[in-house]
Write a protein that binds this DNA or RNA. Structure first.
Length: 196
DNA sequence: AGCGTGATCTTT
DNA sequence: AAGATCACGCTG
């Protein structure tokens, strides 16, 4: 299976959010445990005109990874409980990232079930805080990249336009009007909107 | 529909 | 130094 090269990530953030749909996120935990998930939901966060983006007011200690090279991981901690996984986009020194909001389990389900404390397949990776817990991703992963033996993306067929849905990003209060959430239509592993 | 949880950012 | 916010998940 082909690994996606650095050039794959060199697209505008919103475009990358679409192109990531359907691709396989891989984490090698050990020689014997490999975890794989198919990306089914993403959100774009980009630059200084997007008030929901952590970097809209400029570089800080937390968001500095968003200014790094495309294909790196930006992982941050929020709500006192949860790590969020983002893939950095945009050229160096320009802030941008794609939040991975949901995946479909492909390999390593036993490990994911143990991490999450549930056997329900659609509950393993169907939210940004859930999937980091399932993949044992924490702050130590911030700044790693997708071109190593530990983390990489596998190529997979492009999702046709008529199977991609667009909407407002979930859980934010600012810039609600931007339709920067992308997800695969009718996929049961997409996260539920908050409050429903 | 309400709450836990703690880092980060803004305001004093 | 204090207060508000937060790209959430769980219980009920």
């Amino acid at each position: 299976m082909q690994r996606l090269p650095e050039q794959f990530f060199e697209h505008q953030t919103l475009e990358l959010a679409e192109k990531l749909l359907g691709k396989i996120f891989v984490r090698r935990i050990s020689d014997t445990v490999e975890l794989k998930g198919r990306i089914v939901e993403t959100e774009a966060y980009c630059g200084e005109f997007d008030e929901a983006c952590h970097a809209w007011r400029g570089k800080t200690a937390r968001n500095s990874m968003m200014f790094n090279k495309p294909g790196m991981l930006y992982v941050y901690f929020t709500y006192g409980n949860h790590y969020m996984l983002n893939i950095v986009s945009e050229p160096e020194n320009i802030p941008g990232a794609v939040l991975i909001r949901a995946m479909e389990p492909v390999e390593g389900e036993a490990f994911m079930q143990k991490q999450r404390g549930t056997m329900v397949a659609t509950a393993l990776l169907s939210g940004p805080g859930k999937l980091t817990k399932a993949f044992a991703i924490n702050g130590d992963c911030n700044g790693k990249d997708l071109f190593s033996s530990e983390f990489f993306l596998e190529n997979a067929p492009e999702i046709p336009q008529n199977a991609i849905a667009t909407g407002s990003r979930i859980g934010i209060t600012k810039s609600r009007e931007l339709q920067w959430r992308k997800y695969i239509l009718n996929n049961p592993h997409v996260s539920k909107a908050r409050g429903s």
